[in-house]
Design a protein around this nucleic acid. Structure first.
Lengths: 154, 154
DNA sequence: CGCTTGCTTCAAGTGCACTTGAAGGTCCTA
DNA sequence: TAGGACCTTCAAGTGCACTTGAAGCAAGCG
């Protein structure tokens, strides 16, 4: 695995809000990952990473002197957040929109907050539904486990 | 909307385990719903209901004298459960498999229990992830809300 | 020097879960 | 008896999120 090469560039607009201290495979300063490294770290395939970049979900990926992608810790953080958003069920198109807002800078803090608040509400609803589903599953599991005696039968 | 017609038939193998007293639009005995009624009640489209039947996810739907589907409360219960399973992320193919087990009768209680226990574990994991996601969202929302003072920035 | 490895782009293909279209049957009301 | 509402089947189409294939460049090793 070839590592480091190109020299640093003025940072493009980023998420700006990296919340928790998620550990990176390499410390800042030595964080130039190849696409296959990022694939290994994130579980996303290399084509998916290219596609994310293409559609604008992973913007401003740097390139080495010979045109190969060099991802940084910033990209890993963003991908981790994208993974979270994906878990909420947010469509990729909406994530692309959000990524666009991030790139436009602080002016979009308001809209970003609204989006995340809406997402938050959806997650809460989803969790409540899953909680109910858990109850249904438990009831059925009990029924199947203790077959003859259990609750109702049709 | 045309309603009731055909006369009752010996019940085919059903879920056998109807847990909660979910209310039905019409009481047992008068429960013969047209496809559009079921579509209205469940939120599924009529083509989707036909397709569910076709692939074996909704077996043994009765027919009226002229070949039209007549769904019963049993079908509504099953569809409600299918909706729950869908919420867990279970693929339709797996639900079809489960439906097959239900049709095969009590011999499959063991396997059904295993499937639901596995599903249950997945739901628990998913809920934990959503909980973490909620924390991440909250942190970002706070950041975007109280912009200048807040925690970290890249 | 040629081979292998790993990257590149661009276009086409895949899998899932439906959705839509076409053509036709049946029943009720005017 | 004509129209409209509602149903039927079968086949093809859609949208999303990737995945796969084809063709080619660049670096490192024997």
């Amino acid at each position: 695995m070839t590592v480091i090469d190109s020299t640093s560039v003025i940072s493009p607009p980023v998420d700006v809000c990296v919340v928790a201290g998620t550990e990176h495979p390499r410390p800042d300063g030595q964080d130039r990952y190849t696409i296959s490294e990022v694939a290994a770290y994130t579980g996303l395939s290399a084509p998916t990473l290219r596609w994310y970049e293409e559609i604008g979900l992973l913007p401003d990926v740097e390139r080495s002197h010979n045109g190969q992608r060099r991802f940084g810790n910033r990209d890993l953080d963003w991908l981790a957040f994208v993974r979270r958003l994906r878990m909420t069920g947010m469509p990729v198109a909406d994530m692309v929109h959000f990524a666009g807002l991030v790139q436009r800078g602080e002016d979009t803090f308001g809209e970003r907050r609204e989006i995340l608040e809406r997402t938050r509400r959806e997650v809460v609803v989803r969790m409540a539904e899953l909680q109910e589903t858990l109850a249904v599953l438990d009831a059925k599991i009990d029924f199947y486990a203790g077959a003859p005696q259990a609750s109702e039968r049709a």
